[in-house]
Design a binder for these strands. Structure first.
Lengths: 224, 224
DNA sequence: CTTTTACAATAGTTATAATTATGGTTTTGG
DNA sequence: CCAAAACCATAATTATAACTATTGTAAAAG
């Protein structure tokens, strides 16, 4: 078979199909365990070998599964990463929305607003630390196009809610302007989080406080 | 050969050697052309197929070279990416340091300081746009451990210079505090840049202005 | 208890990326 | 212009990741 394996010539760079939709949802409890095991093992392996050297075969070997068992639920490794990314973003979103609903944006004083914002940031940081591999999931959310969409969608949704909530406090800026601003600050919050998680030698609390001050002041001064 | 190919069993996950040191510097002009061609082709391919699907074979094919020609200068694809990352960071650093030297941090008024900062950001953005593939290089600088080091080193160096320059203006905060602050703002500047470059649909200028205001105000209010 | 569906393993195939031994060609220094 | 060094191509090998056809087993429905 190796004789004609070189005979194929392609004119241009082909796209490989990359559909990350889950093939099938596990229905029995045994299967649900397998599904969760795949996700957990992937997270652990991310911490050990990183994004580049992660492969479905490696996940199978470590999880004590065989490829077909994995491929029943995930069509490729990006599908696993996507599920991890979805879950992480969902948990973060939930925390932010809950914070908004609990009046996180309705502080009386400047100092109280800063403190409230710091609490939110540290809450989100904690959530991210909870599951192994999440630091690498964050990287994947930036580096892999399919996961970028998840990240952007999540960020924009959160920003919209924030803009609504700030508008409801009677802020002078237009809704459109508030949305831009919320988008930017949300992005900066993510950046700060990555800095805190990726560089544990730095003073994470200090970073959160500084960021919070910056953002609160920014909204205070926001016009038009 | 396929009979015993499965007979090997590894106890643990092995590390592959990943030394990105350039094997040899090109000495003749023809070789320098080849070296540059590899870098340029890699940049173009990054724009076309992305980080994940980039391979040395693909670079060779597109550049009209053969693998040994590439492997003379680069031991693997990370070495190419690292060179691209080094160059990008070096150009960005140069722009920032030049801005500092030209008094970018010594503005008289708040508004002038903001305008000056905006000019810097847009300068850096332009530099990054100049070479194909740089958006993906930025992603690689976050996602690939070896390139992370380059990014962090560059950021910390720039932050030190900024801290020095701000201290020289007679800022009340301690040198240590200024360094922390410079580190954070530099990181945020990078984030803003990535946002501008990755999402062209957004108003890049607005993002730069908002970021500049945030940062200038932040330094104005920085204490202890 | 039997049938049906869901589940997972055996044992591979295929595709592609990484890498190199060898030998010929161009350039440069003497 | 000749020898030595630098350079690059031919033509592969090796390694590994992605993926699956088939078959057997466990669980749920009846």
């Amino acid at each position: 078979m190796s004789t004609q394996s070189k005979a194929r010539s392609r004119k241009t760079v082909e796209k490989r199909k990359v559909a990350t939709e889950a093939k099938q949802q596990p229905q029995q409890t045994r299967a649900q365990d397998t599904y969760e095991l795949i996700l957990k093992t992937t997270g652990q392996l991310l911490d050990e070998v990183g994004l580049e050297r992660l492969s479905t075969n490696l996940v199978c070997k470590r999880a004590g599964l065989t490829p077909p068992a994995l491929y029943r639920y995930f069509p490729n490794k990006y599908a696993i990463l996507r599920e991890l990314g979805d879950r992480l973003m969902a948990r973060q979103d939930e925390a932010v929305l809950q914070w908004i609903d609990e009046g996180g944006l309705q502080s009386a004083s400047h100092e109280e607003a800063v403190a409230s914002n710091v609490r939110l940031q540290e809450r989100v940081n904690d959530i991210t630390r909870q599951f192994p591999g999440n630091i690498f999931v964050l990287r994947a959310l930036r580096a892999i196009p399919l996961l970028r969409e998840v990240r952007i969608a999540s960020r924009d949704m959160v920003a919209e809610r924030m803009a609504d909530a700030i508008a409801a406090t009677g802020h002078k800026a237009s809704r459109e302007r508030l949305l831009e601003a919320a988008c930017l600050t949300t992005e900066l919050m993510y950046s700060g989080m990555e800095m805190v998680l990726e560089e544990p030698s730095r003073d994470g609390h200090r970073i959160c406080v500084d960021l919070a001050r910056m953002m609160v002041t920014y909204y205070d001064q926001l016009e038009s």
